[in-house]
Amino acid sequence: MTRLSLASIVTTSAFGLCAVALGAHAQTPSAPSAAGAQELHAADKTFITDGTQTVATQRDAARIADSRSSDRDVKAFAEKLVADYTKLSDSMRAASPRGVDVPANDADTAVLDGIKNLRGADFDKTYIEQVALDGQQKTLSAFQAEMASGRDAGLKKAATAALPVIQADYAQAQELAKRKHLAG
């Protein structure tokens, strides 16, 4: 029978423990997106979901307005929203913390379904009241809530930078509603 020295036993045991530890570490899933999402404050998570949805809804509804509206003022407003809200969507995605999934196109389908089969004056009225006014108000609220309660510096900065654009678009929606003699 072979006798092992104490040093050999200690070295072999240490090597074995290192191998077990490395094997256990290799089997632990490396999921930065899950860790990043768990570390994100609730207000920031809400902003990512609600903010991206309102932005996507405004953008997609404005695209529908371009083909369904018969009014050049509504079409001009919609074209501006497509440009503004495409930029907002990109800035939100860029500002989100690494590993956090930001929905690319998560529009509210109920809102889009409510307008996509309308045309002409019926479309214009519904679009102005339900999308331009109500939708802009929801977007404004989501961004203001992030500024007030959010904790992620990048998201708060994006919300702060976007606020003047959203406020200007909301004011333009109110003016459009007034010119068309609609609630606003």
Rank of each mutant, 00 (worst) to 15 (best):
M1G: 13
T2N: 12
S5L: 06
L6I: 12
T11Q: 07
T11A: 15
A14F: 12
G16I: 09
L17N: 06
C18N: 12
V20D: 07
L22R: 07
G23L: 11
A26Y: 08
T28S: 06
A31H: 10
A31L: 15
A35T: 15
G36I: 01
L40H: 13
K45E: 02
D50S: 13
R59K: 11
A61G: 07
A62K: 04
S67D: 10
S69W: 03
S70Y: 11
S70T: 10
D71E: 04
D73I: 07
V74H: 02
K75S: 10
E79S: 10
K87V: 09
D90A: 13
S91T: 14
S91K: 12
R93N: 02
R93W: 03
S96Q: 02
P97M: 03
P97H: 06
P97A: 04
G99S: 05
V100C: 05
V100R: 04
D101R: 15
T109C: 04
V111H: 03
G114T: 08
K116F: 04
K116S: 14
F123A: 08
I128D: 02
E129G: 01
Q130T: 08
Q137A: 13
L140K: 14
S141T: 14
S141N: 13
A142E: 04
R151T: 10
G154K: 10
L155W: 00
K157I: 00
K157H: 03
A161N: 14
L163R: 11
L163A: 08
Q172P: 00
A173G: 00
K178W: 00
R179K: 15
H181A: 14
L182P: 02
